[in-house]
């Protein structure tokens, strides 16, 4: 038994989930919403996490499915990364999902779980940051929608008791030009040194990076006259510190990231300017 004396809820509606949260929190339990549970079980095994209650959101209809309507593509937070990778609805999102963990693990990892998890990579959020996606979150105070770039500041900024129900992305993202690369030290199935994504969004080039820093970041530059130096200087102006760990030094991550800036512009047809 990895988790000791944990209370396990399987709500079938948003209301039930919020009620479960209220009930468990009122008893002083440490409450966690759960998607696939892969990170919760591994962190519990390592002793990094000892939840008192888990609320599994996978049976909630609003947190499931991929749908189109009103100019957006909506992804339920409990949709697995395998399904997103295979769907191809948003090529950049699918490409990103396909490189997280391995396929069997992606059969369990959910979109919301990856983005709201404890690990610093949270790569599934990159496409939502680039294309101006939105989060649909709910909690004791009701449901709200927030822009991805506002709600996600290094991590998802949720209020007490809230969880992600779904994420949406403009339908135009399904055909917009994009660039993606992921660099690892020890082969494909590994945490990234750098995951770098870019896309043309109206009159700007939007970039999002994971792995290089303590958390994913995003920024945009005007498309007109953009060069590698412009992008690198914009990145430097953010004042972020590159990570050093057993997989790679800060200097190596910086070199990979700046190389990706150039490759992204080439791929997006902006390299010759």
């Amino acid at each position: 038994m990895i988790l000791e004396d944990v209370r396990y809820y399987q709500p079938e509606t948003i209301r039930e989930a919020v009620d479960a949260y209220r009930e468990a929190a009122a008893e002083g339990l440490s409450v966690h919403y759960m998607g696939g549970g892969t990170e919760i079980t591994t962190h519990a095994r390592d002793g990094k996490l000892a939840p008192g209650a888990l609320i599994d959101i996978k049976r909630i209809p609003e947190a499931n499915g991929i749908s189109r309507g009103s100019g957006v593509i909506r992804f339920g937070a409990a949709v697995t990364l395998t399904r997103i990778a295979d769907s191809g609805d948003v090529p950049l999102l699918s490409a990103t999902a396909r490189r997280i963990a391995d396929r069997t693990t992606r059969n369990s990892i959910t979109l919301g779980g990856n983005i709201a998890g404890m690990l610093p990579y949270r790569e599934a959020v990159l496409a939502f940051l680039i294309y101006g996606g939105t989060f649909e979150v709910t909690g004791p105070e009701g449901t709200r929608t927030a822009a991805a770039r506002e709600l996600f500041d290094r991590r998802v900024r949720l209020e007490d008791g809230e969880f992600i129900v779904a994420l949406s992305i403009p339908e135009s993202a399904s055909t917009a030009p994009w660039y993606y690369t992921r660099r690892e030290r020890d082969g494909r199935v590994d945490y990234p040194l750098v995951t770098f994504a870019a896309g043309l969004v109206r009159d700007a080039v939007a970039f999002a990076v994971a792995g290089a820093f303590l958390a994913p970041i995003a920024f945009s530059v005007p498309a007109a006259g953009v060069t590698r130096d412009v992008v690198v200087n914009e990145l430097k102006a953010l004042g972020l510190k590159y990570r050093t760990d057993m997989r790679g030094s800060a200097e190596y991550r910086r070199a990979l990231t700046e190389r990706a800036c150039r490759d992204a512009l080439d791929a997006l047809g902006k390299g010759a300017q």
Partner: peptide
């Protein structure tokens, strides 16, 4: 296929 060691 799922990894049964990380699923409740």
């Amino acid at each position: 296929p799922i990894k049964s060691c990380i699923v409740l």
